[in-house]
């Protein structure tokens, strides 16, 4: 059998070199980030159970570094790999069509699917600002370490802050709307019998997740949290 590639170069053409490999990494890391968001939102919603409950939860997390740090490390690795594959694939894509179309139709691709790179980058900017705001307190106007309830309610009495958080959650909804469907394709778990259910389910997860996150700043601003 004549092969178009030598055996050695075939061996060397490792997993991550191919676009399919990079997309698989992206799908797994995206899924890890999504699962973490589920935990995160469950933490946030405890604000509705009162000052003591959410502060106790925060104190519990900080008192168990053996749980906090492994999770943080997994998240950092996941986000670095997620962004690395996203950027490499994007650079490749630009190179792969050196002369663009003068006219280009669109046969049904959603806005969400066409803007994953940009919704992703906006999320990255948000994540950095959010860490400086609520984790380190660097850009918080009245940060009290350990008093999560105060840090949240103080920040979310400012309408511009609430607007920024809600905007970021709209972008998260967009990213997950397509991402939660696309990962089933990337990992090859898709089956046409389920596709008609996967797409609406992904959309529902995306919207519910982003809405639950956005609920906290909105509720604080509206005066529902005391």
């Amino acid at each position: 059998m004549k092969s178009t590639m030598s055996v050695t170069s075939r061996r060397l053409a490792s997993f991550y070199q191919t676009a399919v490999g990079k997309k698989a990494v992206m799908a797994v890391t995206g899924l890890i980030l999504f699962l973490w968001l589920v935990l995160h939102v469950l933490g946030n919603l405890q604000i509705f159970l009162g000052r003591d409950q959410i502060n106790r939860y925060s104190a519990f997390l900080h008192a168990t570094p053996e749980a906090l740090w492994p999770v943080r490390i997994i998240l950092i690795v996941a986000i670095v790999l997620h962004i690395n594959s996203a950027v490499l694939l994007y650079l490749q894509k630009v190179k792969n069509r050196p002369i663009g179309y003068t006219k280009k139709g669109n046969r049904g691709a959603t806005v969400m699917s066409r803007t994953m790179m940009w919704s992703g980058f906006a999320l990255l900017v948000f994540i950095i600002l959010h860490l400086l705001h609520m984790t380190t307190g660097t850009i918080h106007k009245d940060f009290i370490a350990g008093d999560v309830f105060h840090n949240l309610t103080f920040a979310f009495h400012q309408p511009t802050v609430v607007a920024l958080y809600v905007l970021a959650m709209a972008l998260l909804a967009m990213h997950l709307y397509h991402g939660l469907y696309s990962f089933t394709q990337s990992l090859g778990v898709s089956n046409p019998r389920h596709t008609s259910r996967i797409k609406p389910l992904a959309a529902a997860f995306a919207i519910v997740m982003a809405s639950l996150f956005a609920l906290v700043p909105i509720a604080v601003l509206a005066g529902f949290v005391h």
């Binding site: 053409a13 676009a19 399919v20 490749q92 894509k93 190179k95 069509r97 691709a109 699917s113």
Partner: peptide
């Protein structure tokens, strides 16, 4: 699968983002 995917990449074809444009045309 290994060889065709690797060759596809070597030829300069891009990655799939599941937009569905190919299926539509």
């Amino acid at each position: 699968a290994e060889r065709m995917v690797t060759q596809m990449h070597a030829e300069g074809f891009g990655h799939c983002t599941s937009t569905g444009e190919c299926e539509a045309v």
